[in-house]
Design a protein around this nucleic acid. Sequence first.
RNA 1: GGAGAGGUGGCUGAGUGGUUGAAAGCGCUCCCCUGCUAAGGGAGUAUAGGGUAAUCCCCUAUCGAGGGUUCGAAUCCCUCUCUCUCCGCCA
Length: 422
Amino acid sequence: MLDPKRLRKDTDFVIDNLKRRGYVFDIDTWTKLETKRKDLQSKNETQQSQLNDISKEIGLAKKDGKDISSLQDKASNLTQEIKEQTKILDELLRAIEEFTLSIPNLIDIDVPDGKDETDNLEIRKHGSPKEFTFIVKDHLEIADKEIDMEAGVKITGSRFKVFKNEIAQLQRALISFMVDTHVSENGYEEVYVPYIVNKDSLLGTGQLPKFEEDLFKLDNKNEFYLTSTAEVPVTNLLREEIFDSVSLPIKYVCHTPCFRSEAGSYGKDTRGIMRLHQFEKVELVQAVEASDSEEALEELTGHAESILKKLDLPYRVVSLCSGDIGFSAAKTYDLEVWVPSQNAYREISSCSNFRDFQARRLKARWKRSGDKNTELLHTLNGSGLALSRTVLAILENFQESDGSVSVPDALRGYLNKDSILG
RNA sequence: GGAGAGGUGGCUGAGUGGUUGAAAGCGCUCCCCUGCUAAGGGAGUAUAGGGUAAUCCCCUAUCGAGGGUUCGAAUCCCUCUCUCUCCGCCA
């Protein structure tokens, strides 16, 4: 959620910034709603104040045994009026909330301008695509028995897969490797969280109200949803909390499955395990003081990169352009891993700075000890990394001519193998 | 699933429908006192919205959440939710 005060004061700036995303901010509607609200609210509060005074008077008069009937009439009328007005005010507030919740975040100055993913800016490259002396296979050809497409369809439906034997082991090893690295080398605190989340949590991180169609909703009166990313439960650990400055920065790492409806991606990445309704992910979440968030994004991105480096996977970092960046993010770096079978870099991690956008929705704050005033936290997160795509990348980048796959050095201790599928 | 008891400030814990945003204690901050320490004395110590350029000041709201009764609700009524205890079931 944007800062309403900023909207009021810096309106032109906000409009221009949102325009870079291609979002047209309806300033007229907003101004109308806000002006009305301000009038009604201050009127309402003044009357409430009057009523409070009269009520106190009644109390005192009653004690002294004085006549209170005229005061009571006055109060009665006032109460009636306030009730009617509050109804209107509540409706107005609801309308304003709905409106402001659907406005995306402002983007940082250094976010490149552009329309879509083709305009994303490459920041740096690490490693280079390996030259193969044989015709490369894709991950399904490499592990056709261990990645069971039929079984996933039988059990559930399309975009569900079953991993068997060495692929299941590989994924499990990767999860341990990633979480361990982030805990012991990068200073994150490991958390385990619910995979089912409520509406408030999804509102807090920005998946709702605008992106309900991306989620799996449970048929349940509580209005629960399957979590689409650990970002939701983990960031919501901060909701309605006030942290002391000494406890910052907060750094969580969490492995969860992720459930996504993938609405609107029919026919896209239908082969293999690139895009699934259910996949595993290790997620990094940070909460920092406002002045530290730019640096924190660089740091967090570096942490995600460190996994790719340790696994010897070639990748590049791109800065998402204004037209491609997500609703809640102020700035996003995508890490894209080299996929030999597609001869392309594909997203394997997305690292974002949300600044105070989520924190305002979440009421996630901090303050200096002894200080009176609270400040909104800045939240960040990034995948470190998405598991099924890491499995895919390892299979394809480390494939050998004999059909086996060599295991990256960093992983050998976790898998107790130098080579799989041999 | 059955039965019962509860959700009050950073914590513990009072609270007969009427200056209670909330006693008291603990903790914390500042000041005073004391050679230092300990003890003692004093003051302060929730969050949000609005009025405002303003973190001073003023108003409003908030005692799990949402409704209701009332001139007035932490206090009465209803619904929901969460926690705890006992029984049952279960990994």
